[in-house]
Design a protein around this nucleic acid. Structure first.
Lengths: 207, 207
DNA sequence: GCGAGACTGTACCGATCGGTAAACAAATTA
DNA sequence: TAATTTGTTTACCGATCGGTACAGTCTCGC
């Protein structure tokens, strides 16, 4: 019959979207079929192990995207503040200011967590590690950087949950802005336009 | 046949647990039946509208528990710092340091969100409002308090996600400690130490 | 006692689930 | 052109899904 999809890779994006919207169990083969435009036969041709393999493919793609767009700059970029700002911008865009769910985070709280535990863990560990590396290169202490990196990643995940629950993208935006103020160290430039609210933050610097 | 359950209320706790563990779609009637010890007949006797009504009942119970244990003290307690510390302690205990998922948060990122949107929103709005009220009574500005309250609730949600993903309850604990440092205003007593873990309080009342 | 609900067990419903089999068409290679 | 690989369609499988029907059994007020 007519060939509809050139490569397996073309199915990843719609696959990701349908898993994000419906979860692992909720994404039925009928839904997946509609989203990708492929029948069951084709789906099982590309992914012989069914849904599990599809999710693994999606997680791999997501991991690669973050590696390239976020983790790698965080680890290697000499302009550390720039890399951190870029991370926040990419994140804001990627998650559509909280309107789009984080598939990895959603899987982490689902009962299917165990199936993908390693991939889920890897995604977050890489993120925290990369961010910690950047913070250390800012001149911060290693322990402090670890805590702060952890806090940043967790804040992003929480912001997605809360902004969706409240149906208010501004919640996500505020969290990102807050994060910027906490992660970016202003050197000497006197133009502090981003960090208008300095008062209550600085004092709670302990751990 | 033999009567097994005295009241509908007795089913709420196992119901909550099974929905937490398997999500709305993942919690099949077979699973629910096993968790509650009730056959379909009994289940549909207590909840004529099926799973949806079961979830609503659970959400109602959860909301009531938080109202009594967290929101109300936050709004009314004269010892504001005490109420905030109690909130953190209750939260840590309730979520078992991140080992237990927040059902409301999990529903918020699922595709079934729309079904329960109002209840989900209400849960979080009440939490943020109550915490904001406490922070204002601490002497903070209203706007600042709003932001800070939002940030605290979001941090708890994110901590659940991250600590589960990393399979490390310490992540959750650190986030709670961090929050304490940011929310509680020390008056004069230099007795900081923090955490100290109020020992395993009662464990009952599992909503 | 006895009737009325309140509760329970079981059989059953149509729909859908994830997954398989195989006939078949198009592109690729020889 | 012939053979092979690669992709697509369709029909089908047993299991399970959420939900219903209903007869049976309990408890309790009278």
């Amino acid at each position: 019959m007519a060939r509809m999809v050139a490569e397996r890779a073309d199915t990843i994006a719609p696959l990701a979207e349908v898993f994000r919207e419906h979860g692992y169990e909720g994404a039925s083969l009928a839904l997946i079929s509609k989203a990708t435009g492929l029948g069951k036969g084709s789906l099982y041709h590309f992914f012989p192990n069914g849904k599990e393999e599809m999710v693994r493919a999606v997680l791999g793609e997501i991991g690669q995207w973050f590696e390239d767009a976020v983790y790698s700059p965080l680890r290697n970029e000499s302009d550390v503040n720039g890399a951190i700002c870029a991370m926040l911008a990419s994140t804001d865009q990627y998650f559509r200011s909280g309107r789009r769910v984080c598939l990895v985070g959603a899987l982490a709280v689902a009962n299917t967590r165990d199936l993908f535990a390693q991939a889920i863990r890897g995604y977050f560990v890489a993120w925290v590690d990369a961010l910690q590396s950047a913070l250390i290169r800012q001149g911060r202490e290693a322990d402090q950087s670890r805590i702060l990196a952890e806090e940043a990643v967790l804040t992003i995940q929480g912001a997605i949950v809360l902004s969706r629950a409240m149906d208010d993208p501004a919640v996500f935006q505020r969290a990102i802005d807050q994060l910027r103020g906490r992660l970016v160290i202003e050197k000497d430039t006197s133009n502090n336009e981003g960090t208008t609210d300095v008062s209550p933050q600085n004092e709670g610097r302990l751990v």
